[in-house]
Design a protein around this nucleic acid. Sequence first.
DNA 1: TATTGTTATACTCTATAACTATA
DNA 2: TATAGTTATAGAGTATAACAATA
Lengths: 161, 161
Amino acid sequence: MPLSPEKDLDSDPAPATSPTRDLDTSFLESLVGYNARRAVLQIIELFISRMTDHDMRPVQFSVMSLIARNPGITSRQLCDVLGMMSSNLVAMVRSLEKRKLIIRKPHPNDGRATGLHPTRAGTALVHVGEQTISALEIEATSGLTSAERKTLIRLLKKIYL
Amino acid sequence: MPLSPEKDLDSDPAPATSPTRDLDTSFLESLVGYNARRAVLQIIELFISRMTDHDMRPVQFSVMSLIARNPGITSRQLCDVLGMMSSNLVAMVRSLEKRKLIIRKPHPNDGRATGLHPTRAGTALVHVGEQTISALEIEATSGLTSAERKTLIRLLKKIYL
DNA sequence: TATTGTTATACTCTATAACTATA
DNA sequence: TATAGTTATAGAGTATAACAATA
């Protein structure tokens, strides 16, 4: 079964140029990838506007939340969970350390690894941040019922898990 | 109602460092934004691997598809539909023009605007690309039933529309 | 005055390759 | 050999400010 593109490219197109005519976006809108990306951009926009006070980008906060909830977590573990490359985590960890939100301690069992731990300030920031983000999420999905929101998350997990 | 973070930050954490212990990712996994982003990354990865032959990135292809389906569309209209900033479209349009996938014609009614039109090669590329992407989408969402896939798209639209 | 398109610029994100220290 | 972390680098993606031409 096709993805229901309501219009074929070989059929006669709309008049070439007319400022206010409706655009054919049927193909893009038939894609999970396109719709999910637009939804993410919407949520990220809200995220950034609410977290400017804490100077926290989405990925940065994901890292902080994971460190706060898993003291001693290593860079490798963070990369695995977040789907990041280790080289891209270095600058972020250094930045969080410089801001005194985390501290690094040698890993007790593995001399190659470094355990990442939240400072008191880091824990406090995650505390406040998680509450802000929970509220923001509810707001961003205010068009969904609670059941729909759960369904949405369940279906998304089926794609990437 | 809280977002069901199964663990509070103030409760005793797991042993500080133990290589193979399970990580607490409950907060992130309770977020639509996090799950949607992970799903998007999964689909984009598949997209890029399938479209390398055509040297097409996701946004690039979105632009090409819209131009092919809406000959004469302007940069402004593309920006509105895709949620992009006009300054970021300039280089992409120039690149597509240099690759002879599109041509630019003066807008008939508005001297400020430029109409973007697909070349024969551009139309052909979109034709093949849309089929590739439709197949890729089905593959990426193979864990979902057809009904679930429709539900997923419907719920995502409720967030950003 | 407002809008379209443009240049210049900067920061974030992502990806690769090469290196070190340790396992 | 393999893994954890790092450096350097490059290409996308996204954002702002300022500008010329046109409405």
